[in-house]
Nucleic acid binder design. Sequence first.
DNA 1: GGCATATATTTGCCTTGACAAATATATGCC
DNA 2: GGCATATATTTGTCAAGGCAAATATATGCC
Lengths: 161, 161
Amino acid sequence: MSGMNFNEPFPIPPAGASHLPSLGMLLNMVRSEMVRAIEAELSSQGVDLSFTQFLILKKAQLLGAVSATELARAVEIDGGAMTRQLDQLERKGYLRRTPHAQDRRALRIELTDTGHAVWKDTASVCSQRVITASQRSLSELEQTQLHDYLTRVLNALRDKH
Amino acid sequence: MSGMNFNEPFPIPPAGASHLPSLGMLLNMVRSEMVRAIEAELSSQGVDLSFTQFLILKKAQLLGAVSATELARAVEIDGGAMTRQLDQLERKGYLRRTPHAQDRRALRIELTDTGHAVWKDTASVCSQRVITASQRSLSELEQTQLHDYLTRVLNALRDKH
DNA sequence: GGCATATATTTGCCTTGACAAATATATGCC
DNA sequence: GGCATATATTTGTCAAGGCAAATATATGCC
């Protein structure tokens, strides 16, 4: 039952199998291309930020001053990973850790002026450019639908647990 | 110009900011939920496979006997990563490395009978269940559109290099 | 106040994937 | 044949994220 067919070393794959990537595979591919593209765009503008660091800046800018934990939740990475990313972002001068006034366990994470400027002048523009380019073959309606469908898929995956 | 507003430790985020996740973030989230869900489903069926290993089995089953490099391309991981995943899958008894008859550099990767059985009886069913569940709130048409839109986004990202 | 429990941050350990170097072999050209 | 170049696999190194343990602090209940 196992290995017949020794005459062809690499048999032609089951003809007709149309090889449409599955949804999981497709998400994998689109995500990694988008990450690559955004990092490349940032780097081409002289901004040294990984995709994760880009997200952290984005959320920090959006949420104002927050704790590391809130930021970790917003970016959906682990608390430990956040600590290390904050180390780097602090070293790069994009943000600052301040003790929280009421809770001495917690931090107050804030963008520096440099951080705000990099976000506003470069990072947000880069990501917008990539996202726009990636959707250039979709109509307005289709872009909305894509967003909507992905959100519904996400909800389905999270409910069903 | 930097840090006014010391009275609120965690200022309310810019009200009205609707917080719609960006496409990049959304892809991140959907992908990681789907990976998590498929791994959980596999594990609940007693199958010890990471998502990557699941993809490798899937492609190996689909393509028949292939070289490690072809498999790496199909799954979109690095050749080095593939070597290590093959080590594990071989240890688990799901596949076999055989020397290629015509090319002594290359391998011929083949599923074992166990590998075929696990794929057919369990793994393919698990992933199908998750993918179906994740799309349960989408109509047939919407599922097709989602696939189509993602494919077009992928092409846009890859062309525009 | 004192104590059990919960939370915030940090650190160590582990696995994974990317990238580069090493090795073996193939291929095309002279 | 001999050599330059390309390809397949493996291995080492590195950065990243998940998880668990350690530490400090907060909170609720007695």
